[in-house]
Simulated assay, not measured.
Amino acid sequence: MKNLIKLFVALLAISCKSQTVSLEQAAQCRDNPNCSMNYNYVKDINNTLNKYIGTWKGVYNGRTYEMKFNKNLYDDMGMKKDEITGRLRIITTGNFPMTIYDNLNEPDDSKTHFSGLGLTTDLQGYRMIFSGSVPRGCINHGTVSLRINPSTPNQMRIFYISDKDIVVGECPSTFSQTFPEKQEIILTKQ
Rank of each mutant, 00 (worst) to 15 (best):
S110F: 04
Q124F: 00
E83D: 04
M67P: 00
Y101G: 00
G118Q: 06
P150V: 02
Q183F: 07
R63Y: 06
V42P: 00
D109I: 08
P33H: 05
M77L: 12
E184A: 14
K182H: 08
N46K: 10
V134H: 11
D31K: 03
P135D: 05
N34G: 07
T120W: 08
D108F: 08
Q177A: 15
Y60K: 15
N70D: 15
S173T: 14
L11V: 09
N34E: 12
I129S: 15
F114A: 01
N154P: 02
L117M: 14
I185Y: 12
D82R: 11
S151V: 07
A10Y: 09
V21M: 01
Q177Y: 06
K164V: 11
C171A: 05
R127V: 01
G118S: 05
G169C: 06
V167A: 15
C16W: 08
K80N: 07
V21E: 02
L123Q: 11
L23C: 04
T64L: 04
I158H: 09
F96W: 00
T121Q: 13
R87M: 12
R136M: 07
E170D: 14
P107M: 07
I53L: 01
E181F: 14
Q183K: 15
D108V: 08
L7Q: 14
P97N: 02
H113Q: 12
Y101L: 05
M67G: 00
I185A: 13
R147Q: 14
M156K: 08
R63N: 12
T121H: 13
A26G: 05
Y126G: 11
N46I: 01
M77G: 00
M79N: 13
F159M: 14
T20A: 02
W56T: 07
F175G: 06
F130D: 10
A27Y: 11
G169K: 08
Q28H: 04
N46V: 01
I5G: 03
N149E: 05
I139A: 14
R63A: 09
S133M: 08
I129Q: 12
R30W: 06
H141W: 14
Y74M: 07
S110T: 12
G94L: 10
L12N: 09
V144Q: 07
G94Q: 09
N32C: 03
T93V: 11
K111S: 09
K189M: 03
N70H: 07
D165K: 13
C16F: 13
L123D: 06
R147E: 08
N70Q: 12
V134T: 15
L73D: 07
Q28C: 01
K71M: 05
I186T: 15
N3H: 10
S15C: 09
D165W: 10
L187S: 10
K71T: 04
F130M: 09
I91C: 00
C29V: 01
G142I: 11
L4E: 14
S173Q: 13
S151R: 10
C29N: 06
L88Y: 03
G58P: 11
R147A: 13
M156A: 12
S22Y: 01
W56N: 11
T99R: 02
V134F: 05
Y74E: 13
I84M: 12
P97G: 03
I161S: 15
T55P: 02
Q183I: 13
K6N: 15
C16Q: 13
V168Y: 04
R89Y: 00
D31N: 14
Y60W: 12
R63C: 06
R87A: 04
I90Q: 06
K189C: 03
L11F: 08
W56Y: 04
